[in-house]
């Protein structure tokens, strides 16, 4: 029953499921490394999904749709940035308000597109490689969003660790007073980081409404923005661990459906709760092995320059 074809197909599903989470959480990771906790991920994501779908449907271009989604995510993120960075309002409340606003705005934008559909973003079948056993489809037969998520991951990992921009960004997140004293424009950097987060969340939304389930329906993100937020914590603010977390969560979500298909009679509620339990379990193991969570020291603390 478990032949290579099934394993390959399951892997392909896992990759697709993990990609939405990976995209959204990468952006949030950057925002958090700059010291801002943006709980508006769900809101930015759903607006991205709505605007991306509306644009792609109206223009017939997936590329335009994707760009519009990214832009929409950025616009919503600016609401949060305005409140949390420039007005130094409470970040948790600002993020939650952004999410509520985003869910409403997305519903309004999407309302005239209910019941329509578009063609899904095509899988970019790479000749020869796609034909490889087991991993062929999973690794080389995916749509552009999957490859974009991997490229973004590499860029963020490298950017944070090896570039001057990354260094400054981390400095702002660790100690904004010191960074300010060194002459770094703390609030501008944070705004840019939040905008990057918005762009990524918008892209994640576009992945849902243009590739994964290519149609629009209200509340179609169904809480994935929250999972993305939790995964950033899971990763201890390290991009590579984020990859592990997103794929672990995606894998358990998909596998529990397969286990059900075998008809073992395990309560489905228990199987449905496995992704959450697995994430907790993995986090406990990781945190038991090393000390500290590595949270940016200034995370969640508003910055107001004294002079």
């Amino acid at each position: 029953m478990l032949d290579a074809a099934i394993i390959g197909a399951v892997l392909a599903s896992v990759v697709a499921a993990a990609t939405t989470l990976l995209l959204a959480s990468l952006g949030e990771l950057v925002a958090e490394r700059a010291g801002t906790l943006n709980l508006g991920v769900e809101g930015m994501m759903i607006v991205g999904a709505a605007v991306g779908y509306a644009t792609a449907y109206s223009s017939g271009s997936l590329l335009l749709g994707t760009l519009a989604a990214v832009l929409a995510g950025v616009v919503v993120s600016l609401v949060f940035a305005g409140l949390a960075v420039w007005l130094a309002a409470n970040q948790v409340a600002s993020g939650l308000a952004t999410t509520i606003l985003g869910l409403g705005v997305a519903g309004l934008i999407g309302s005239s597109f209910v019941g329509t559909r578009i063609d899904a973003a095509p899988a970019l079948h790479l000749p020869v490689l796609t034909g490889l056993p087991i991993i062929g489809e999973a690794v080389f037969g995916q749509d552009a969003f999957v490859y974009a998520s991997v490229l973004l991951l590499i860029a963020v990992t490298y950017g944070l660790a090896r570039t001057r921009v990354g260094l400054v960004l981390r400095a702002v997140g660790e100690n904004h007073a010191a960074a300010h004293a060194l002459g770094h424009p703390v609030r501008k950097i944070r705004t840019l980081a939040i905008m990057f987060g918005g762009a990524c969340a918008g892209l994640a939304g576009a992945h849902l409404s243009l590739a994964y389930t290519p149609f629009w329906a209200s509340d179609m993100t169904a809480g994935r923005g929250w999972i993305a937020l939790a995964l950033v914590v899971f990763s201890a603010w390290r991009p590579l661990w984020l990859l592990a977390g997103a794929y672990l969560f995606g894998a358990v979500s998909i596998l529990q459906l397969h286990v059900q298909g075998f008809g073992l009679g395990i309560p489905s509620q228990f199987l449905s709760s496995l992704p959450y339990l697995a994430t907790i379990g993995a986090l406990v193991v990781i945190s038991a092995l090393k000390h500290g969570q590595g949270a940016p020291a200034s995370l969640g603390v508003p910055f107001v320059p004294d002079r």
Binding site: S13, L208, T213, R224, I254, L257
Partner: peptide
């Protein structure tokens, strides 16, 4: 939607 799509894929697989 995404979970329903996953379920359909799992059943097809």
């Amino acid at each position: 939607p995404a979970k329903e799509a996953d379920a359909a894929k799992a059943l097809i697989d």
